[in-house]
Design a protein around this nucleic acid. Structure first.
Lengths: 133, 133
DNA sequence: ATCAAATCAGTAACAGTTACTATTTTTATT
DNA sequence: AATAAAAATAGTAACTGTTACTGATTTGAT
């Protein structure tokens, strides 16, 4: 049985108001303003729990620590390979790739996980300042 | 300057003859048959080096340790969420999703990384044995 | 054969995360 | 409101996967 916890509530609210997909460490240091002696373990436990019950999303990008997304609706992410920032993307109609992937496959494709990477808007603009034009 | 190393050669050959995308730990224990006192650090260093020069691929699935693929040509992977096995997929013509993802995005999409998941052929067959038919 | 650069084995250190324990909070029941 | 069991907590230790360090060995150009 799930009981209320002020710490969990604070973590969820914190994520709901951020769009930069912070790490557990970042959540920890920021929640500390409100709960000075919250422990890192509590942050990890609640992030895992919230992700499990589908109220947030956990992003394992493969480089560096996991990141967390306060928006539970499925959506894709972009990772800037210049500055490392992680951004939300609004892409739809990508489910057909499951069919393509299942074409010559004896098993059953149930879903996919995709990350897009490249230059984020900021880094693109920054780079254009120095290019010939 | 890159110098030859028997250990690196053995690691590369080992991977070239496997299709199950072993972990560094697995590579280590198996290479030990030929090099009884090879160290785990050497395995990690060479796997990273081989991946960097494009002779193998490193797969960061997000759950558990990284896995390594002896085939350097770009291709997609399937992860069975029943038994955890990682399989190669032959899918082509998925590059158009970069365009779709870049539609309403101010930055520049340069590529993507995708994993498909579901039931592998073995687990599918296993499950069908127990279903009503 | 010489010798610098690369690689090695062995081991210590590290990052990110999970597990443990004794205490505190929550919440259903009185 | 008091009670009590279950859940959550803070604090800390332990763990997993990986990287960094060190002094010895191997490689390959001269």
């Amino acid at each position: 049985m799930l009981k209320y916890s002020r710490q969990r509530e604070a973590i969820k609210n914190f994520l709901a108001n951020r769009y930069d997909h912070p790490t557990a460490e970042t959540v920890y240091t920021r929640i500390k303003d409100e709960f000075p002696n919250i422990s890192l373990g509590t942050v990890y436990r609640n992030l895992a729990l919230l992700a499990e019950i589908g109220e947030i999303q956990k992003l394992s990008t493969g480089f560096g620590p996991d990141r967390f997304d306060g928006r539970p609706e499925p959506h894709y992410h972009f990772i800037c390979n210049r500055c490392g920032s992680v951004l939300d993307l609004t892409v739809d109609g990508l489910d057909h790739i499951n069919v393509l992937a299942g074409q010559d496959f004896g098993g059953e494709i149930e879903g996919h996980l995709a990350y897009f990477y490249g230059k984020c808007p900021d880094c693109k603009q920054e780079e254009e300042k120095f290019s010939t034009h």
